[in-house]
C-alpha cells in the first residue's frame, strides 16, 4: 500500500509528508473498501454514461477573436521574464 501511495503521489505530482502518508495509507484502504461496494452490483451489458444530458456538440465557427493582452496573460504568473512565463529548469 505504501508503494502504491508513493506511485500515486508521483503520478499526481503531490509530495506527501510522513504524517500525510501515514494518514492516507489508512484512508486509501478504507476508501477502496468503500469503492469496492460497486462490485456487488451487476453491470453486465450496461453502457457507461459519460455525458449525463444527451447533447451533441455544438461547434464554434473558425472565426478569430481577440486574445488576452500580454499584460493580462502574464498578470498572475508567479515568475516571468521578457514576455515569457518562467518555469523551473527541466533537468
Amino acid at each position: 500500500m505504501e508503494k502504491l501511495l508513493e506511485h500515486l503521489s508521483w503520478l499526481a505530482r503531490v509530495k506527501l509528508c510522513n504524517y500525510e502518508r501515514k494518514l492516507l495509507v489508512n484512508d486509501i484502504a478504507k476508501i477502496m473498501e468503500f469503492f469496492n461496494r460497486l462490485g456487488e452490483i451487476d453491470v453486465k451489458d450496461v453502457e457507461p454514461t459519460t455525458h449525463v444530458i444527451e447533447l451533441v456538440s455544438v461547434f464554434r465557427e473558425d472565426k478569430p477573436g481577440k486574445p488576452l493582452s500580454l499584460d493580462k496573460a502574464l498578470k498572475n504568473a508567479p515568475s516571468k521574464e521578457g514576455g515569457f512565463f518562467k518555469a523551473p529548469r527541466i533537468l
Binding site: F35, L38, G39, I41, V43, V46, E47, P48, T49, T50, V52
Partner: peptide
C-alpha cells in the same frame, strides 16, 4: 472503478 462507476451512473439514470 471509473468505468464501473459510469455504468452504475447509467443504472441510476
Amino acid at each position: 472503478y471509473y468505468l464501473r462507476a459510469l455504468k452504475v451512473r447509467t443504472l441510476i439514470l
